[in-house]
Design a protein around this nucleic acid. Sequence first.
DNA 1: CATTTTTACTAAACGGGTTTAGTTTTATAA
DNA 2: TTATAAAACTAAACCCGTTTAGTAAAAATG
Lengths: 354, 354
Amino acid sequence: MKKTSLNDIAKSLGVSKTLVSMVLNGHGTKNGISKQTQEKVHAKARELNYKPNQIARGLRTGKSNTIGLIVADISNPFYAKLARHIEHYCSLANYNVIFCSSEEEPHKEAELLDMLADRQVDGIILSATGQDSNQILKLKRDGIPFVLIDRYYPRLDNNFVGVDNYQSAYDLTDHLIRLGYNRIAHLTVSPSHASSLRDRYKGYRAALKDANIRYSSQYYQEVSFEEPEAGVNRAIRELLEPPHIVNAIFAANNRLAVTALEVFNKWNIKIPQDVALVSFDDMDLFKFCFPPITAVAQPIQEIGKHAVELLIHHIENKEKNPPTHQIILPTKLEIRRSCGNFLTPLETLPIKTK
Amino acid sequence: MKKTSLNDIAKSLGVSKTLVSMVLNGHGTKNGISKQTQEKVHAKARELNYKPNQIARGLRTGKSNTIGLIVADISNPFYAKLARHIEHYCSLANYNVIFCSSEEEPHKEAELLDMLADRQVDGIILSATGQDSNQILKLKRDGIPFVLIDRYYPRLDNNFVGVDNYQSAYDLTDHLIRLGYNRIAHLTVSPSHASSLRDRYKGYRAALKDANIRYSSQYYQEVSFEEPEAGVNRAIRELLEPPHIVNAIFAANNRLAVTALEVFNKWNIKIPQDVALVSFDDMDLFKFCFPPITAVAQPIQEIGKHAVELLIHHIENKEKNPPTHQIILPTKLEIRRSCGNFLTPLETLPIKTK
DNA sequence: CATTTTTACTAAACGGGTTTAGTTTTATAA
DNA sequence: TTATAAAACTAAACCCGTTTAGTAAAAATG
């Protein structure tokens, strides 16, 4: 059964499609269409189950009421939850979401951005891989409204919603230090072009420095995004085999922490007896694993909400060229048992170096 | 900067836009356009960074190269992973995905289906809430190709990709029975219109029956999707407070199992000493929690792959009206420690009834 | 009664592609 | 030399809404 078009309604009532369009868009009264005619149009539209073709409408109005969302990895619960909230807030504002996952690959990110532009999305929410700011400059040049989430480009003045990765990482490291850990590894992803990861590292370093703890380059372990298993394996062996370089590990994201957990399991390494573990980004798993893992939790729902609000504001005030906003939301340090006695965070524990 | 249109290229070369369109779509030679002209067109398109407007193209061709995906709950890792694979396979076939989450609400599902139809998607992949088959009939009537995943409508002859929930639930229950558990609760979601959940229940009942284990209606516990916490709390209190109605719990999906884990944590209920727990649907958490949870794992990537293949096949053979397919994929029973000694599944353990 | 205003509506352009049905020019066959 | 075919290209319709500019008829005003 073919779909009903505006013309079908117009013909069957013997009026112009202009009239039908105006009435159905609620501009009937404004344009002086009589009450009776309006009623007839509405009745016929209902009868024929008319649904406007959004593509045709979009072609004329230049608006698709669709936004694009590109996250680094949709299978990561952090981004999955974020995606859900973004979809939710968009649907409240009558926008749809085209959903993409860049798999942390800059060339895929570039392709996706092009594709979204071809689809005439009204705006884009992007967690950038961070390697190539040309993409961002192109968006700007093409005048497509966009909001960066999670990661930003330090030198560019863009809309951004995220957390203070530096301070949160500082606090997380400081938490370890106050519990007496003095040899803390930093496990991160390579190549870590993402601003979030770089800031986490800087916060970690600053906390060490402020506590007068000597940093060793051996503490820094980078593993590839594509194959974290092998990298984490190697990193943990280096860090924990005699002479036990570290007594605590700071995982720069949840995926690394989970992978570390797997490796610990395999080698029967005990937390926190053999090593303490903390993670940036919380997840359900960390509540239930043994022992529960201390982590920095990001306010995912708020990030999604602000990103959508900001984006839609920009879309709907496009010509006025509104100023950009940077929204930094607070994180929460979820203290659990993976660093030892969590009830007395200020008491330093005797650390057993195995 | 305004985007380049076909007309821009045509004018700047002094040719018709027909010619440009044909050349850029690779129909140049077929339509007898000379080599030189074709080269000129390509060169100019490159120079002006021409990208066809997909909306305009879609309006004319009636194809949007977009499919809609509706899952029940995108924040559930099962669906998040599925979504990722679906997006991946679609992008290989040059389709985009509009992503939606019905939150298990039939009216939201209906709205989303309408919305996707308005957006002229070429097809839909749907994990239906299962309450209202009218939606499905409407899709059929409108001639929109679609594939059901995860849940199906037993009476309707549709494309479907999923697993044998009945048999898998039977096997999972049987696993408990062989370990000596004889009072097994079934924890499920209400209202469980989804075929998957109903089949899991049937498989559970059949396994009990075949083992000559008496079933009590007290074993069946239904909790609401919107607020599982309260429901699971109540259910577990009913099941595990004296007189300890059951010694094992079969959670019909991973979310219920995770919620149960939370409740156990709160009340200091030990697995498997106080109660055994198994879950339908696996997740990372079950590998790492203490103890690790035995679960039925679905082949998520294969489900996504087959769903996309089937859908695209139907889209691209629409007029030929290809026959429907039902693809049932094998599950895997991941035996862990949540039911006691997992190394000797045939040996019955002495069960302590608290 | 003539003119202006208001009411109720319509024709046609537009957006940016695709596609059908030609047209013009040049080469080939009769 | 003329009819015919092939080669190279174009005009215009079409998809389906939205929007601008305008018209016809009735009512109000001078």
